[in-house]
Amino acid sequence: MSEPQKSNRPLVRTLTVFFLMALILGPGPGSTLIDGTAEDPNFLFGVPALYAWVVFWYVVMAGCVVVAARKLWRDED
């Protein structure tokens, strides 16, 4: 994710796994597992499950960006 010192490698791996998982599960096939059916859509605390799904994976992906920016990316000028 950054171009990384040895101590950072576990964090790079963790962020990469989470980011790719979010990218594949979020908009990908995972979305069809939680939405229910057109006749009986699923809800989570009154919120459509698919909307909650979008928000959840957005938080995961944005979290990965923020952690990478603060912990991994260096200001190398």
Partner: peptide, 29 residues
């Protein structure tokens, strides 16, 4: 969300793989 929950279920779920905004199209986009 009370009003939204009364909408047609098709609007609250993913479309079939051959329809617009399907999951594979969303992922590759």
């Amino acid at each position: 969300f009370a009003e939204v929950s009364k909408l047609d279920g098709k609007l609250l779920t993913m479309p079939e793989p051959s329809e617009r905004f399907n999951t594979w199209q969303a992922m590759t986009f």
